[in-house]
Write a protein that binds this DNA or RNA. Sequence first.
DNA 1: ACCTGAACACCGTTCAAGT
DNA 2: ACCTGAACACCGTTCAAGT
Lengths: 200, 200
Amino acid sequence: MNASPASARNDRGAVVAAAMSVLAENGLPGLSMRRIADELEVQVSALYWHFPNKQALLAAVSEQVVALGEDTSDAAADLAAIATSLRERLLAHRDGAELVSSSLALGLLELPSRTRLESTALAEGLDAASAAIAADTLVHYVIGSTFHEQQRTHASVVGAADASADLTPARVADSADEFAAGLAMVVAGIRSAAGSRAAR
Amino acid sequence: MNASPASARNDRGAVVAAAMSVLAENGLPGLSMRRIADELEVQVSALYWHFPNKQALLAAVSEQVVALGEDTSDAAADLAAIATSLRERLLAHRDGAELVSSSLALGLLELPSRTRLESTALAEGLDAASAAIAADTLVHYVIGSTFHEQQRTHASVVGAADASADLTPARVADSADEFAAGLAMVVAGIRSAAGSRAAR
DNA sequence: ACCTGAACACCGTTCAAGT
DNA sequence: ACCTGAACACCGTTCAAGT
């Protein structure tokens, strides 16, 4: 419909896509404005037409990382399932947990999973205040453990992490089990908060 | 005892102390090798005689932050008390949670509180594997929520954080209550893991 | 044992100017 | 509407050399 001018320029989406590819190749420490600009074959200053600063750009990338897929079918309203799928989306991107953690802390990112966790907690019988706290607690657990896990694997690539680098293949394999075990404890604690009300 | 030469030079401790004062004044983003060197009235390159790189220096600072005080008297062997005192030490230093989080993730820091949490969990009847997971879960909760809290106060200073900057004085005051409420849930979950064993 | 001085290869951000 | 080119004020790290 729009008469597209001879040479198409970049839009926000293209910048975010370029940033995601730089992130995948170089990790968060290597995600510089200059490298993103190189990826787009553009001057660094061009990026500042699309985003006011680097943090805003990172927030847009974070949004992509934590976006829920199709909300339609399997909206599995289960605390553990929601937390586990958040973990999986963070693990799907290099340094995903650290990236999301900082956008979140700066107040630049809404976490769809958090909303789902809160309403699920409400449905399980928590009062409003407790449901909010339960959602935050789960989010902190997921981001904290995933951040730690991603940094540990990165450290082992670098070869750092002296004594405590217990990264035998077997141990890597069951990091998911450790996550699930800790998650089960947190969920049990949340359920006990529901039980202490005069539910059912 | 030692014949101290005319002009005393710096040692590791002096470098760490300078770093802590720069951290207090400028926060983690402002904690650069150059500023630390300025504080000591020394060239930047001098710092590399004491520490191989910046991360190692930050790890030494982190160690100071999380060090337990006198281990003698009130070694209150209570999960919530240990977690709360860890939170307080992190809050006592600007950007303390973020600093410790990264040193920890890089495997450059031992967390004394974690050891205490693990043995306390054991004493409460958890098996070895569960006690380790319980300790990690608590550490993730404490660091995650404290990190978030410290970033939020910093964001409010900067004036960023648009809509969700719910930082009324009252709300700041009860962030400790929110922490305690989430902590209670996690601890309850850990206790339920102890109960599921054939304890007592 | 501890530091200087200078260099290298980077950063994020701004701004006038172009098309 | 989107980009260039150049500049500003920074970074962490290395290394030969000094005392």
